[in-house]
């Protein structure tokens, strides 16, 4: 049955309409969880507010479990789902640059759009920065093209890399996430601050 678009059960235009609706859900959840506040987001790096950690990992776990169960029931063919490619050099380099941008700017692209929607001016400036950054990348593409395409490892899954089943890996990830949540809540008690 699923995924619906690759299985040609819905047209491209329906898919775009559904993308819009999914986006509304995405934006609503981000804003309602407090991701529209840069000081709340940055809190995770100082321990006073770990909402990012909790929402982010709970979201990843729920979606992962959902997909594994859908696949188990035969509702969804995981072979048709997009798996992010792994280009080792660029993913590390890009991640490091993004990390620096995150702590300086206080947003990531998704949350900045969401925050700009409720009138945060710092988020609007962040988005201007994003456009400039992307423009620098596209303009200077020939300079970093070889880095961008270096060390292509295909579409590996982490559980295959360490040789365990997807289900068992999911369980380990859940346990790891719970350990992080526990640490996060301890940190919140250790560095209490009023909510922004």
């Amino acid at each position: 049955m699923g995924p619906l678009l690759p299985n040609e059960l819905i047209s491209n235009n329906t898919n775009f309409l559904l993308a819009f609706i999914i986006g509304i859900g995405f934006g609503f959840v981000l804003e309602a969880s407090g991701f529209s506040s840069s000081r709340k987001l940055a809190g995770v790096f100082y321990g006073y507010d770990t909402v990012v950690l909790k929402v982010f990992f709970t979201g990843a776990i729920v979606a992962m479990l959902g997909m594994l169960f859908f696949s188990l029931f035969g509702w969804m063919d995981l072979n048709l789902v997009y798996i992010n490619p792994t280009f080792l050099t660029s993913v590390i380099l890009g991640g490091v640059i993004m990390g620096a941008g995150f702590i300086m700017g206080g947003f990531c692209p998704g949350t900045s759009v969401c925050a700009a929607a409720i009138g945060k001016i710092d988020a609007m400036f962040f988005i201007i920065g994003l456009f400039i950054g992307i423009f620098i990348f596209t303009e200077g593409y020939p300079i970093w093209e070889h880095i961008y395409k270096a060390k292509f490892l295909g579409f590996p899954k982490l559980n295959e890399l360490i040789g365990i089943s997807q289900g068992f890996f999911a369980l380990l990830l859940i346990i790891a996430a719970f350990a992080m949540f526990w640490l996060g809540e301890k940190a919140e008690k250790a560095f209490p601050r009023e909510e922004y």
């Binding site: 660029s90 380099l93 890009g94 991640g95 490091v96 640059i97 993004m98 990390g99 620096a100 941008g101 995150f102 702590i103 300086m104 700017g105 206080g106 947003f107 990531c108 692209p109 900045s112 400036f125 962040f126 988005i127 201007i128 920065g129 994003l130 456009f131 400039i132 950054g133 992307i134 423009f135 620098i136 990348f137 596209t138 970093w144 880095i147 961008y148």
Partner: peptide, 11 residues
């Protein structure tokens, strides 16, 4: 931060 994040997200 936006410039860095924008560039990093493409890389």
């Amino acid at each position: 931060g936006g410039i860095l994040f924008g560039f990093g997200s493409q890389m």
